[in-house]
């Protein structure tokens, strides 16, 4: 490795497209049994500020790198990521403690069409960890509430204990500015809400198809069912956005893993309009 450059001090290595930028963990919030929200601060130089729906590649020393969506937009170069521990690199990331240094590349991908939703009704549908990339959308709506028409948020989780951002959901519900609905796959003692799949809550929503836009993130089967439900009710497929999840190793369109037909989820997505991806996500194993 004599060809490697000499160390240039923390955080000031040359920035190739595959080189992470060191960030320090400044806050750790355990959201649920398997979900953690990390707030990161650049050790020296940061990255370009992300927009809602984008992701970064988070690197943990010795473990590797994974794509993690931005779960809130923060000031001063801070980054907020909510990570579900599904073993591997995510387990290491979720075990991070304040003061640890992680690597960040990005931000990558296309975000949600928040501007296109101004002046429209907005239906936001999230399943499980899918609420993480949609939370900054809710924040954006609440910050400029009068810019949007009727706004509904339907959140599905396996159980009440696995509902993400529970305190915030309660707060949003109490503000009555967004129609917040939650539904769980399995009820548990004390749960008085709905039980079933997210479309069970969508059925009860009043929807004006002509003026509705939708943003959907969750397991692919959930996104398919929700998009189908909305288009059946007259919402244009082009007004529905989904966030596509695929294996990603480079995030810059060169590793080949995240292809969905003609698209690279990392750069053409992850947020893609349903009219564009419906024919791809409905072919088995494409």
């Amino acid at each position: 490795m004599s060809t490697l450059a000499e160390p240039r001090g923390p955080g000031v290595a040359a920035r190739g497209s595959m080189t992470p930028i060191p960030h320090r963990v400044v806050d750790v919030v355990h959201e649920t049994r398997e979900t953690v929200t990390l707030t990161l601060e650049p050790v020296s130089d940061g990255i370009v500020a992300p927009v809602a729906g984008q992701f970064t590649m988070l690197w943990a020393w010795g473990a590797g790198e994974v794509p993690i969506s931005v779960s809130a937009l923060a000031a001063d170069g801070r980054l907020v990521h909510t990570i579900r521990d599904v073993a591997g690199v995510t387990k290491t990331l979720c075990a991070s403690r304040q003061g640890d240094v992680l690597g960040v590349r990005g931000p990558y991908g296309c975000g949600w069409g928040i501007d296109a939703a101004r002046g429209h009704d907005l239906v936001i549908v999230a399943g499980g960890i899918g609420l993480a990339p949609l939370r900054p959308v809710v924040h954006a709506v609440l910050a400029e509430r009068s810019e949007f028409g009727r706004v509904s948020l339907v959140v599905g989780a396996r159980t009440e204990q696995e509902l993400l951002f529970r305190a915030e959901l309660d707060e949003w519900w109490h503000r009555h500015e967004v129609d917040v609905r939650t539904i769980v796959d399995r009820s548990s003692p004390g749960w008085s809400g709905s039980v079933g799949v997210v479309t069970g809550e969508l059925v009860g929503l009043e929807i004006d198809p002509a003026s509705t836009r939708a943003m959907v993130c969750g397991p692919e089967v959930m996104m398919r069912v929700v998009a189908q439900h909305l288009t059946d009710r007259g919402v244009a497929a082009s007004a529905i956005e989904v966030s596509v999840e695929r294996n990603m190793q480079c995030a810059v369109k060169t590793c080949g893993h995240c292809q969905v037909g003609p698209f690279f989820a990392c750069t053409d997505g992850p947020v893609l309009p349903w009219d564009v991806v419906a024919s791809l996500l409905t072919v088995r194993e494409l």
Binding site: P10, T19, P22
Partner: peptide, 9 residues
């Protein structure tokens, strides 16, 4: 205390 990343040049 912080990782320094040296790129392959």
């Amino acid at each position: 205390g912080a990782p320094v990343i040296e790129e392959n040049e």
